[in-house]
């Protein structure tokens, strides 16, 4: 099925304030696209976790926020890119409870439970690209 990109915005992540800015952008789009409050909170929280991951682990990176349409439904896709240390064991990181930064280790595993799709491309020393997608529920 053809996926159309309705809008696309690249945002830099290189300080803690950027975590907020990316999150607010995604929250606003979700509300405008008719996400209910639970879905909005889920997508916005996942965005917050993953933006913070970029900032904490890589120090800087990028978020690409897109509104997409496919077969009559709308969604929001966010890609988080960094050139940081990368993830050695993606499976383990996704299982949760595993942290290299003294946090709770819920960032990746928790985010996966909040969105419809989460994809990770990463290797040690080669940076990380995490992509999430959530559809607005049809009413």
């Amino acid at each position: 099925m053809a996926t159309r990109v309705l809008s696309r915005q690249e945002m830099k992540i290189d300080c803690e304030d950027d975590v907020l800015l990316v999150r607010r952008r995604v929250q606003m789009l979700a509300q405008q696209r008719g996400f209910d409050p639970f879905a909005t909170a889920a997508l916005t929280t996942a965005t917050s976790e993953l933006t913070r991951n970029v900032w904490i682990h890589a120090g800087r990176g990028q978020a690409v926020v897109e509104e997409i349409a496919e077969g009559g439904r709308c969604g929001i896709r966010v890609q988080f890119r960094d050139e940081g240390p990368g993830i050695a064991d993606i499976e383990r990181a996704l299982r949760g409870g595993y942290s290299t930064a003294g946090s709770l280790g819920l960032g990746l595993s928790g985010s996966r439970r909040l969105v419809d799709h989460l994809n990770i491309e990463s290797a040690p020393g080669r940076g990380t690209v995490v992509t999430i997608l959530k559809w607005a529920r049809l009413r």
């Binding site: 409050p37 639970f38 909170a41 889920a42 949760g96 928790g110």
Partner: peptide, 14 residues
């Protein structure tokens, strides 16, 4: 705590 926040934290496993 807002309902959507409670739901989100629970789904994350917090």
């Amino acid at each position: 705590m807002r309902p959507a926040v409670a739901a989100t934290l629970t789904r994350m496993g917090f």
